[in-house]
């Protein structure tokens, strides 16, 4: 219901932009606030690409981290490591942004799509690790013992008895992370370069939907400009909903045969 109201509001507020540019808006790369010419494509590209890069880095890292913490480590530091990872999630994104500007961006050759993706991946890591670890630990102990009793090794036990039941939860963790990546504004804005252009190079500056809204909303002078920014917000919302929808389908496909 709330979502519908929100959608309605965004639709009304962005109607001017939609009327002016039509569907061409989604496929245009132009962005010239001075002459009131706008296109959304570079932002859509930047948002999706930076999130994908983040996921590509954070998923294998986070998943192996959580498997290690939940299944392998018997060290007494295990809990501390987990707490430290959880703590990563509590760091304000603007602080990540500062670190990105001073450390990460110089290391990666300046602000770029890649820098934005890497910063995002660090921010996703705690989410994916913590949730995956929880769901892996939540798999009933007697399933593990059943696999062990069949003569499975530790790794085979994980594959046989743990991964399957935990999979839907892991997908959930990924989606939660992806949701955060798509909408993350501050840290990305600080390191991605904020240039509305689509470049084949990952080392070129880019721009995301969230960043452009944050950067330009206060300075938008014309009504068309404002309405276009709202429209970008609408696109961001739709992308998020679609991603969640895909996730639901994935989860349903892996566990849904049940009933």
């Amino acid at each position: 219901m709330l979502l519908l109201l929100l959608l309605l509001l965004l639709l009304i507020k962005s109607s001017l932009g939609f009327k002016t540019f039509g569907f061409g808006f989604f496929f245009s790369s132009a962005w010239d606030p001075l002459h009131d010419v706008f296109g959304a494509l570079p932002f859509i590209y930047g948002t999706i690409m930076s999130s994908l890069i983040a996921l590509l880095i954070a998923l294998p890292l986070g998943l192996s981290c959580s498997i290690y913490l939940a299944e392998i480590s018997h060290s007494k530091f295990k809990e501390h490591i987990a707490t430290m990872i959880d703590l990563l999630a509590a760091i304000p994104s603007v602080v990540y942004g500062l670190w990105g500007i001073f450390v990460l961006a110089p290391a990666l050759g300046g602000p770029s799509l890649l820098t934005g993706g890497v910063i995002l991946s660090i921010m996703l890591l705690p989410t994916i690790t913590a949730i995956s670890r929880e769901v892996i630990q939540a798999v009933p102990h007697n399933l593990r013992e059943s696999a062990l009793a069949l003569g499975a090794t530790k790794w085979e036990t994980f594959k046989l008895a743990v991964f399957g039941p935990a999979l839907s939860g892991i997908v959930g963790a990924v989606i939660l992370g992806l949701g955060r990546a798509l909408g993350e504004t501050m840290a990305v804005t600080m390191v991605i370069g904020n240039r509305p252009a689509i470049s084949p190079s990952l080392f070129a500056p880019a721009y995301t939907l969230a960043s452009v809204i944050a950067n330009e909303f206060a300075e938008a002078t014309s009504e068309v400009n404002l309405s276009v920014l709202v429209e970008l917000g609408l696109i961001l919302l739709v992308i998020t909903v679609i991603v969640n929808g895909i996730a639901r389908i994935l989860v349903w496909k892996t566990t849904g045969h049940k009933k």
Partner: peptide, 22 residues
């Protein structure tokens, strides 16, 4: 080794534990 042992000595538990996603 323990793998061979468990292959020769099978076990069934109190609560039925079929692998749920299989």
């Amino acid at each position: 080794d323990v793998v061979t042992l468990r292959r020769r000595v099978g076990m069934v538990f109190q609560k039925p534990t079929p692998f749920p996603t299989m």
